[in-house]
Amino acid sequence: MNIEEIGISELRLPEESNEGPLALIALHDRSGNRGVGCIAATPLRVKEMLRGLSAVIETLDVSRLGSWLSPLSAAVGRRSELAVMLPGLDLALCDLHARQRGTALGVLLGGSADASWPAFARLPLSQVALRESRLERLWSHGFRAFLLECDTRLDIDEIARLRARLGAETRLAIDARGCAEDDLASTCAALAELGVDWLEPPLVANDLARHVEFSRRSSVAIAAPSGMAGWVNYLALSERSVPGLYRPNLLGGCGPSALLGIGCRAMAGGNRLVPVALPSWLGLAAQLHFSAALGAVKAIECAAAVGVERRGLDWRATLPGLDASGRVSLPTGPGLGRDPGGNGETSRVWHRLALAV
């Protein structure tokens, strides 16, 4: 079934998010199904760009998974201003394809309907009052895994105290991008003793050589920088069989189809992934479905947990349901398993673009 209409709205994120303007797009077919995706631009700008691609979009065959990638890429060509559209369109088309079949996207892509992962939430290590306020709410919600943000120095003693307090069963990882690189080499062994799952060091995003060097001499798993430009760098790391963990941005430079390619290479090299996504229901749903398809995902970072201590009475509604061990499961229902209507994260204003189908 071809696409009949495209809806465009603003995607609203928490105030603490550093993301720029974002638009939610909804692709409607003639049977009432719709698939959603996200594009890093204002809704009006997205509408303008979609007009430039409408002649191609209206001819896409949604019935064949992935068949849209070649015509869309050809239409974008060297028009770099349109390249920002591809990850969001890819996700929306995948969602629509699965909804037309009444199947969860992750299952349609070969994943298990029973898949689940440890759900990590971020905590600021050195900002004690903020950390404790956030930890209290997140712990009560069921989180049992935390990504500790170190802003200036890697405080091993504070991490050890937190480990002793939360217990050996609690999962910990470290984001040390704000620290000096010299401080990290001597502390990796201590982090390994504390049972830290992985460390994201302050390396330049595209400096593959430094990442390879640091990974091979570290006693704790090293995460490739999540700010890497494009997914080709992740593939390069996989081809070198660099031990560690990759954090591609699912709704950024790495679209869903690219992420599947990264996952295959990562599994071949014995590595794992923790995909990064927007702090929203859409980002989380995309993480879960493509993690199920990949099978090489170590954990899920729940970005929506950022700023939870300053939200109102509905703060729990922004977080996923977790089981007794703090794991998050694949959403039920067709496609991504959630609908944007009524969740408070989208504007009530929808721009419409009708297609000549």
Rank of each mutant, 00 (worst) to 15 (best):
L235V: 08
A299G: 05
T346D: 05
L93A: 06
L284W: 10
I174T: 05
P21I: 04
A40K: 06
A286D: 15
G7Y: 03
G333M: 06
R12H: 14
A40Y: 02
M85R: 10
H28S: 03
S31M: 11
L105I: 05
G32T: 03
P279A: 11
V196Q: 11
A75I: 09
Y234N: 07
I156D: 10
F143W: 09
G326V: 02
C188A: 11
N343M: 08
R79D: 12
P248C: 07
L260I: 01
R34Q: 13
S238E: 05
L27A: 08
C38E: 15
S219W: 00
R272E: 14
G307I: 03
M1W: 07
R210E: 12
L138R: 10
R240I: 00
D175Y: 02
E345D: 06
D151A: 14
E301V: 01
V204L: 14
N271E: 11
P334W: 03
A113T: 05
S215P: 04
G344S: 07
G321A: 14
I25A: 08
S215Y: 01
A192H: 08
E345Q: 14
C302F: 02
T42K: 13
C302R: 01
V204H: 11
A296G: 05
S80Q: 12
I300C: 02
D197L: 12
R161C: 03
P340T: 03
A296M: 05
